[in-house]
Design a protein around this nucleic acid. Sequence first.
DNA 1: GAGTCGTGGTT
DNA 2: TAACCAAGACT
Length: 370
Amino acid sequence: MATDIKKCIDNMDIKSFQDDLIGWFVSEQRELPWRKDQDPYKVWVSEIMLQQTRVDTVIPYFNRFLENFPTIEALAYADEEKVLKAWEGLGYYSRVRNLQSAVKEVNEKYSGRVPDSPKEISALKGVGPYTAGAILSIAYGKPEPAVDGNVMRVLSRILLIWEDIARPASRKIFETAVRELISHENPSYFNQALMELGALICTPTSPSCLLCPVREHCEAFHEGVQNELPVKTKKKKQKNVQLAAGIFSDGEGRILIRKRPGTGLLANLWEFPTVELSLDFQRQRDQLAEHFEENYSLAPKIGDSIGEIDHVFSHLVWNIQVFSGQITGEISETPQLKLVTEKEIKEFAFPVPYQKMLKQYLEYKKADQP
DNA sequence: GAGTCGTGGTT
DNA sequence: TAACCAAGACT
């Protein structure tokens, strides 16, 4: 650790810092569904859901997920389609695939008990350095660091750490600092309090220093540089991708859907057949038709353009032209290609852009055929 | 280390 | 409004 950070910690009254921080958490913490007990499974599920996701977004998903899959065993034996459906709309879908995979491993290898050693828990799929520390401290009371974005922001201010927190290597500096600072009497509350402070007081912009329970311990506050920290370099802009999608129905009004590949973007979710357009926007219908001919030997009658969907991902932007159409020929359904009714379609997990597309289609159909 | 992987809220 | 952001992990 850099000598100036070490010096900063040496000059701090650590016991007083812990007491102020934990005391604040005891009285000011939010009531959250995953804080009702310390069931390692519930802590685990909540931590996976909370990765890069806001608390308010997670709450309803967490409650529903635990109603559907109350225990390790329930999730281990659950139908993968139903698990994905429960995650629909939460994003970062590999999280739930890894979670179920890891839960199966815990069920078999550890008799359904979540391991409590750093080595074993870190070996589980989807459990990285942060999640391992969070589960170990919150569920098992182990004094392990759980360094997320909140913790890096809070500690960068308290300890005046000028490292770029966008660099993956920076996390270790903060883990070292937490090992020096963490309360061994209550590691769970210490870690949670750092994150709660980051969420409620020590916010990215305009932190509420006058309400902060540990401002007396904060170097950035003393120096008046809390708005200059943390240092975080910007990310690059997303790339634009042009797509055409077809919502095609057969003679009985059933809609053609297909399952996306098991890896990559939106893996294993369902979609309406979609093609990436090769920068020839005038031939959208042709490219869509060619795609169907080549992949399914189908020649759908492509009808009206229903509309346009713009969807922003972390690293790219989709612009989708949506077409309706009719399927005339015989269609051989496979596990990846299905014809479903408007009622049945509710059982399949769709990414948000396709949910919007379906809504547009149903409104279009209602308006077209009163 | 840099790119991949969602979505919705905030500034 | 475009950029930024939110309890990261994996390749």
